[in-house]
Design a protein around this nucleic acid. Structure first.
Lengths: 257, 257
DNA sequence: CTCCGGTGGTAAACTAACTTTACCAGACTT
DNA sequence: AAGTCTGGTAAAGTTAGTTTACCACCGGAG
């Protein structure tokens, strides 16, 4: 065995990329809030100890990603991330920033629990029928190993439960988040399914969640929702760790001297 | 409040640094083992997609850090890290690589448990007297708030217990590790003490460990040792997270608009 | 209204980092 | 002893980043 597969090409971070990363971190962590004006290019360049052209290069990347908007003669501002137009930008941001993703899950945990409780309390007959249909679709997709349909069904379930909560504000907020997550969900699900028997557990969790809402059991519904998110979070952390270890083990195996 | 404190100077990683980091990772994770020959500079430069001069710059840094040794006409080799001469290099490496540090703790957990069990079984009267003395010193240092003496006493306790295990190989291995950790311990302890009432808990754990050995209770001693390391690991993770959150909160506070 | 100081937008010349190419010197194989 | 591996070194060429300067747009002050 040779050692060639061990060493990977190393590309060093360009200066512009470093600047982009720093500003992205500030936005992703919520330190820089939407609409906020950034310091002028000259000032910011001095703060970051970077030349203005390179700073501008970084700002252009951020603008392309929809995270900031610049206005000639005015200044550059953090884009409005809660507006629907900005969704893809925030999603992409979360994909690049692992810690932000877990913050997002933490938030989801609260919201999903709240939504499930309200839904169990308030769901109309029509809501319950819709949820029941989705659960059937969920099981069908699982049995037929139809990954895409399964993902869509999962998505539909969460959406239907939020609808059943009858709270307009909640529906609006979560609609934004789901729209945002949609592409992310696909990626996430693909990743989750690579871990052991995670797929079936997720199905069971979704079934339990839906049935609890249909039964009108608030406590059970909230518990099912939060435990579901907890499981997702745990699975992600496990999966990330697992991948890291696998990558290292692979390198060790290659060397086996 | 202005926004100046938010943006920190950004220095981008030099190419040589990136190469150093990659090779360090391979060594720290144990993929590249001591004495192993690295590919030739020409090959390695090609693998890493880096020019040879820059690769050489990186190798020189690694050599200064004692991680590799190059021989004219022969090649460059991973230095013998278990040899006493190499200790500072590995220690410094662990300080720079967080994951490696936790791997180190995992290893310590097993070894300390083993040592404590053997010590409880085999400690002579002299061993027990020495351990008792160290425990007294430990308490004295704590009461007098003498941080330095407290650290030394902690160190002495672990060392004495390993000595009491009467296993030459174990003593030799742990002696290397302690020598390695010594400077690190200071740093670690300073960091640990910044977290809540950690200091007193550590004292209690050390007292329990020492007394269990003196009492000859193998099970209790092993449990005390592993739980001690578990606590240290948990505290570190907590402390790191805490610092991260504090840093972010500080930035938020500055903006408060 | 005009003007002025702030802002972003652009381009040129300059400097430092990195790459390419070439050649030298030690060490093993034949 | 020759050939070919290895690390050691230096020069020229290329790319990335900095500096400097000037232009265009906006909003408020006179």
């Amino acid at each position: 065995m040779n050692t060639k597969a061990i060493f990977e090409p190393v590309g060093h971070e360009s200066l512009a990329e470093a600047v982009v990363a720093q500003v992205e971190d500030l936005i992703a962590s919520g330190i820089l809030k939407q609409g906020r004006k950034l310091p002028s290019e000259r000032d910011l360049a001095e703060m970051l100890r970077v030349s203005r052209p390179k700073l501008r290069e970084a700002l252009q990347v951020l603008e392309e990603r929809g995270l900031v908007a610049t206005q000639h003669g005015e200044g550059t501002f953090v884009a409005a991330l809660t507006g629907q137009a900005m969704m893809p930008a925030l999603l992409a941001l979360y994909e690049r920033h692992e810690p932000a993703f877990f913050d997002y899950l933490e938030y989801r945990r609260e919201q999903e629990g709240f939504a499930a409780r309200l839904a169990a309390r308030r769901a109309t007959k029509a809501d319950k029928e819709r949820i029941a249909e989705i659960l059937d679709e969920n099981e069908r997709a699982w049995q037929e190993q139809d990954a895409k349909a399964s993902q869509e069904a999962d998505f539909a379930l969460h959406s239907a439960i939020v609808d059943a909560s009858q709270n307009a504000t909640l529906i609006h907020m979560m609609a934004s988040i789901y729209e945002l997550t949609r592409k992310g969900v696909f990626y996430n699900r693909d990743f989750l399914r690579t871990i052991d028997g995670t797929g079936e557990k997720l199905l069971q969790q979704h079934l339990e969640l839906g049935r609890a809402v249909i039964d009108g059991d608030e406590e059970r519904a909230e518990k099912a929702a939060t435990e579901h998110i907890d499981f997702v979070e745990k699975s992600f952390k496990l999966g990330i760790e697992q991948r890291r270890r696998e990558a290292m083990a692979e390198k060790r195996r290659i060397l086996s001297r």
